[in-house]
């Protein structure tokens, strides 16, 4: 059987999504997403814009939020705290990776 080649969609800064699209991809409701934005856990590209749009990388965080909500029965405030901490862990891990990459592998 011939399998068709699929093109991928980037989940990063190069793609933008509407609130409705982010809701559909993550499984969170638009109300929950608006709350997460209000609590500062997810940042729109332009917070002052009437129609909020988001970098596609937020799909990853929003999907994590949906899983945590379901698996830990968290409310939106709990989700916002968890997401903020997870993002800090993520940033620290990136810094750690960068520092490790700079360390010589073997010193003879």
């Amino acid at each position: 059987m011939r399998v068709e080649l699929t093109e991928v969609a980037w989940l990063d800064e190069t793609h933008e999504l509407s609130l409705a699209e982010l809701a559909q991809l993550s499984g969170l409701s638009e109300t929950e997403l608006r709350d997460l934005v209000d609590f500062g856990a997810i940042t729109p590209i332009d917070p002052s814009a009437a129609q909020r749009t988001f970098h596609a990388r937020h799909v990853v965080a929003a999907r994590v939020a949906r899983r945590l909500r379901h698996d830990f029965e968290l409310d939106v405030q709990g989700l916002a705290v968890a997401l903020t901490l997870l993002e800090r862990v993520h940033d620290l891990e990136a810094q750690l990776r960068e520092l490790r990459a700079q360390m010589p592998r073997r010193v003879r």
Partner: peptide, 16 residues
């Protein structure tokens, strides 16, 4: 079958 475009580095998420 998917094309992983150049520049997808460690930790990158992609959606099909």
């Amino acid at each position: 079958k998917a094309r992983i475009p150049k520049g997808a580095t460690d930790g990158q998420r992609l959606r099909l």
